[in-house]
Design a protein around this nucleic acid. Sequence first.
DNA 1: ATAGGGTTAG
Length: 682
Amino acid sequence: MSLARSLKDGLQFHAQVIKSGFTPTVFTSNQLIHLYSKNGLIREAYRLFDEMPERNVYSWNTVINAYIKAQNLSNAQNLFDAVPEKDSVTYNSLISGYANRDGFEDRAVRLFLQMQNDCDGVRRDEFTLTTMLNLTAKLSALSWGQQLHSFMLKTANDLSGFAVSSLIDMYSKSGSFPDAWTVFERGSSSAVDLVSKNAMVAACCREGKLDLAQNLFWSKHEMNDNVSWNTMIAGFAQNGQEEKAIEMFKCMAVEGFSWNEHSFASVLSAFSSLKALKMGKEIHSWVLKKGIDSNPFISSGIVDLYSKCGNMNYAEFVYLKMKVENSFAVTSMIVGYAAEGNMAEARRLFDSLADKNSVVWTAMISGYVKTQQSDDAFELFRQFMERDVRDYDALLFINLLGACTTQAIVDPGKQIHAYIMKVGIEIDEKVVTAVVDMYCKCGSIGYAERIFQNLASRDLILHNVMIAGYAHHGYEYEALQLFEEMVKRGLQPDAVTFVAILSACRHSGLVEVGENYFSSMTEDYSILPERDHYACMIDLYGRANQLEKATVFMDKIPMELDAIILGTFINACKMNRNVKLANDAEEKLLKIEGDNGARYVQLAGVYASEGRWDEMGRIMKKMRGKELRKHAGCSWLQVGNRRHTFISNDRSHSETEAVHAMLDCLIQELEASIHEEEELSQ
DNA sequence: ATAGGGTTAG
């Protein structure tokens, strides 16, 4: 009787055995169990095991692994407990089963600790150690990883390709890239193991060091395999280098490697980021042709493509065909719906998920933030914090801070800030910038400043936020000073920096200083002025009562004048009481934004300021003819849980008398202090 | 002789 190679052979063989009435050897039965398990026939595998009159440790290990492969860890554990004499394979198998199952990691650790000390007295071998390294990588538990590494050095278990690649992966995933590099260099002194090289390429990509990754990839490139290519494609796609990812994707095929689900998933994400619907659709058809559209990574990639391209009907269609709940796809769709302001659909999807991870929560809450539904955002955040799970996403807190920022409510902002510190979120540049920005925009410039000053390293964006914060709160001197400091430290300002700087100048009427910065921007830093810079300059001239300069400046703007620039100019006309120039700009403005009620009101304001009631009446009539309205601007403040809103000439507040009395008081004090200052300066 | 471990993706 021959050995069983395929399932068909195996079944035939098994049938023969039964017919002949012979009892197969333990060895033969073990082989059959393995064959059944490999083909997913777990019940048959177990039955055979169960009917064996005699078993050895291989029989037990094989059937335990069958259950682990079938994700049935409780059966595996029961069998494990029943094994008369366990060996290292028995332990390693179950450790690996638990290590790879989310939420069961502690059991893997417990088994590992039990292993050498238990009555079984089974030695930890290289398999044990690499499996545990995997686990510590997954848990980003660097100190455990280091201990395992020491143990491996002591027991000379650190030399094989398996050991090296696991160590690289562990150090890389635990945020210790230099150690990963050291292990790689030491390990590759003999012969480079391909998997170790791939692991190192992946580590470089994870670190954002794409040049290093590429060098490695191309050195000894004759040994590269599919994984090497896919790693590079993924690396580029994840680091915002979509074009390079696509190039590598094409190159891979030219070099004779065939695309698999990893290649498709990565290139799909590149096309999604580029919103390249056409190319993405081509991949979609490829995927359908290859019949791999049921792969959850691929299908959620396709859903993401359509969602990012704003094609929610297609996204829904593809998702419906998936038939299984997939939080990645749902997250993409929630973001897609939020982008078109359709929070009802987003919420429907959110509520449809039985199992919500923190990314989904983040997407939903951030959607509310982006559509300015702050109350809903905070309400959902409250529910988020009430769960037992503690998986916090820094992005969520950044978004919530953004909500406080647009609402200019500092108390919830402080609470979020406190949460960030309390739940131990890693405070990276993004988080700290959001915190500083929140305090700036909510008017607590002192808090912002204190945080800013205490930071060990400050990048460009953080400087931009702080400079803008100073500029918006009347600290023009501090803004300009910080700018100079920043330049001295060797940070290159960008377009955003200059918007902040010019904005500081316009608030304080520093015409000449502003002009200098404006020209320095192109001459010294080669930054092309954008719309906001032009608008800032016009406003600067307007506020300084230099309308002629504003007019000349505007004529020289090389770009098409848009509503923002024209609106700024009209505002300058109003400050300078120049009805004629406003009149000239009116036509252009209404051509661009004739459907915006606010623009009519703005124009009306110019005419009213000069007492030109005829002109004002004309423009208001024009506005009403179009049935346009302007939302009243308002200010508000939060006291306790109540938000008090005020619009112009508003006396509807329940305590309006008291409010106005206090206001009068403040105005008087203000006037008195101005008077005093004037006397002092004389 | 038969069983267990490493790299890549949203």
